[in-house]
Design a protein around this nucleic acid. Sequence first.
DNA 1: ATGCGTGCAAATGGTTTGCAGTCCA
DNA 2: TGGACTGCAAACCATTTGCACGCAT
Lengths: 142, 142
Amino acid sequence: MNDTINLFQKYLRSKKLKCTPEREEILALILSMSGAHFEADDILTTLRKKKSKIAKGTIYRTLKHLVDAGILRSVIFVDRHAHYEVVAGHKRHSHLVCIKCGKIIEFFDSKIYSALAAIAKKNGFTESGRKVEVTGFCRRCK
Amino acid sequence: MNDTINLFQKYLRSKKLKCTPEREEILALILSMSGAHFEADDILTTLRKKKSKIAKGTIYRTLKHLVDAGILRSVIFVDRHAHYEVVAGHKRHSHLVCIKCGKIIEFFDSKIYSALAAIAKKNGFTESGRKVEVTGFCRRCK
DNA sequence: ATGCGTGCAAATGGTTTGCAGTCCA
DNA sequence: TGGACTGCAAACCATTTGCACGCAT
């Protein structure tokens, strides 16, 4: 967790960006939600509950830097807005998404990932990201 | 191609919807683009060139029906808007997407698809769709 | 005449941006 | 001190929706 904060500071410095209290607060909040998927608006709501005045624009700008720094990853677009999750200390995985209740189950399958890497290579692609997502109805919603 | 039009008409009838010239024109246009990926705005632009007055709203409404009818599928969300492709006569496949030039390469790997089906089943999910997408830089852009 | 469909325009809603003042490095 | 940052509000832009009229059953 402090590692992650360090990582972010290092990233900011490397880009000649500034480490501000707002950026720290947003990152701390995200890390405190430990592992869940979230979206920009969740952060805004939580901050408002805490009486923090950080503006929406600042959240979006910070989120972008966090993705850039490799701390967050954006995943899943069932609807029209971005969802994020913390990358650090989280091994690569994919999602089952229930299109009725929104439930998300994570899974991991190395055979799939290595097959994808091979396909990218075969086509001359340098892989930078991947999205493997299965949508459907969970046990309860089917 | 006429099959697809038939399929759409059957779908419309089954839902007590009407087969209008606008809907036919949109579908015909999509089929004439044979195989390419497109977005709502591409259709609008093409229609405008042809002096067709079909409204934006009608395009979006029709697109939704086409997806519902199983004729189109929405794929890839690198940016913030939907891309579509024709499903009919097109076997299931996935995409390599270049994040620099937007080039898209399709690929097919049945091992991956059956692995995903097995994972969904194991978790009690009824699969309705899937998205397998690898982003990166193509040979030229790397 | 019932009601689905259309064009048009206004509304939505997540995200981005311009600006003027503020604050780190 | 100067360029980066922030809050705020307006702008964006793909998509959706409300409405009044039109057309097929």
